[in-house]
Amino acid sequence: MTESDRWTDLLPLQSTSPEATHALGEQLAERVQPGDVIALHGDLGAGKTHLVKGIGAGLGYNPADIRSPTFTLVHVHEGGRLPLYHIDAYRLGDPAELYEMGADTYLYGEGVCCIEWPSRMGELLPDTALHLQLTHETRTTRRIRQTCHD
């Protein structure tokens, strides 16, 4: 399986419930490798944190311990199959701020790095990141697809 094919049988997905989004996360977690960066694009309430809960569960973490890092910016989970770095760039004034905080430890680390609001990271986002777009369809359904970003 080539790198670009790694996710194609899972995506796109029409998720009809938070549980289905969670299940996709668990499936993604089965295939992630050390150093993978997953950029999660989508509006407020689209299910970004929920998807990370699923990825975390798939890596062996308790999903209840995976909370929104909007205020705290970075949550590090260790002790599962791979470390999980959960970043939220929502409150960043400037991408350089994240760099000063030592973001390269997470972006080029031994674990899986999931990033909410990745567009605010600008140039800091590695070219190899998997970009997922979560879109509100109806109140209960979300479309989750892989996208390309320059």
């Binding site: 407020l44 944190t49 929920h50 209840a64 909370r67 929104s68 909007t70 205020f71």
Partner: peptide
């Protein structure tokens, strides 16, 4: 404790909306 967002975070995001 919270399972997802903190209460203060909800205030900030609603304020933004």
């Amino acid at each position: 404790q919270t399972r997802d967002d903190a209460a203060g975070e909800a205030f900030d995001k609603v304020a933004q909306m």
